[in-house]
Amino acid sequence: MKNNQRDDHLVTTAAASTPAAPNGEVNAGIATATVEIEHLSKWYGDVVAVSDVSFGIGAGVTGLLGPNGAGKSSILKVLAGLLKPSAGEVRVMGRRMRSDVELFRRIGMVPEQETIYPYLTGREFVRWNASLQRVSDLDSATQRALTTADLGDAADRRIGGYSKGMRQRIKIAAALVHDPDILVLDEPLTGTDPVQRVHLIRLIQNLGNAGKTVFVSSHVLHEVERLADRIIVIVNGKLAAVGDYRAIRDKIDEHARTIRVKSTNDRGLASMLITTPHVASVRIDPDPLSLVVEAEDVRAVYRLLPRVAREHDIRLFEIAALDDSLASVFAYVTQR
């Protein structure tokens, strides 16, 4: 279950490039921002990784979405104080991140990088993190975090022998051991198997529901869809859109040009559709067996399909926009 109230509109590039107002739209539909990023830029020599990005995030799960190399990791690293911003400022709970190490008591971060001390067991690693966070009861905090991350017996094995998914979970356990208010996760689902993925998604949603500020980066749209209602879209280091995931989804549906249709009689349906002025072309896709419709007016095709199917006694199993790949989302939100 997604936890966040829906933002009725999508803020795209023009509005998103304005500074983060305390209660403004670029705060991704939240009333009070726990993390405020203002006019953030980060460049490496001549390469601009992040360009004048402003937004705020608050309690609940917020997704940071963007293709590889878009600047997501740079934003997270600046947020965590690992990188010094070239321009702009990051404030966490109203305090400057890079100059205030005590803020790390309030933050848990799961970095993207996989390497963890291979000579430690999972339990030792989490316990060590608890000690650095000055947790009073190391043993119980460690056990609680390990249970939350569902490490099981693997906790007492050396991390050097862990799978990629187990490494992700031990990193999450370590980030949760001090019960932080803010959790920053850089591509947390990478390398996890489907079962682990379901578990981690539920865990992240539960943390958001519990009132924690959870900021999750991903380059996979359907991951973010399952994790967060609010998303921040980054493209080429710039803020492309901030808002509710479903608002973006709605826009995609409105503007989609290609539709996949599965029915009991694809050929019959194709012959009917091609005669209408709303359809540019129709083809049969063998894998999966379906009809791919290029629409002139996609809304008209959506209205037309059930009527044509009913009239010719054809059952429809699925109607899906094919343009909702991540690339299409970015193309859409950046072209507006």
């Binding site: 104080g81 005590e102 790390f104 933050i107 990088q113 963890i116 001390y117 993190n129 650095l132 966070q133």
Partner: peptide
């Protein structure tokens, strides 16, 4: 070099 230093510096501990 292996970037495990992140686990140290992302903590409330003085450099």
């Amino acid at each position: 070099s292996d970037r495990t230093v992140l686990y140290l510096v992302l903590k409330p501990i003085a450099r």
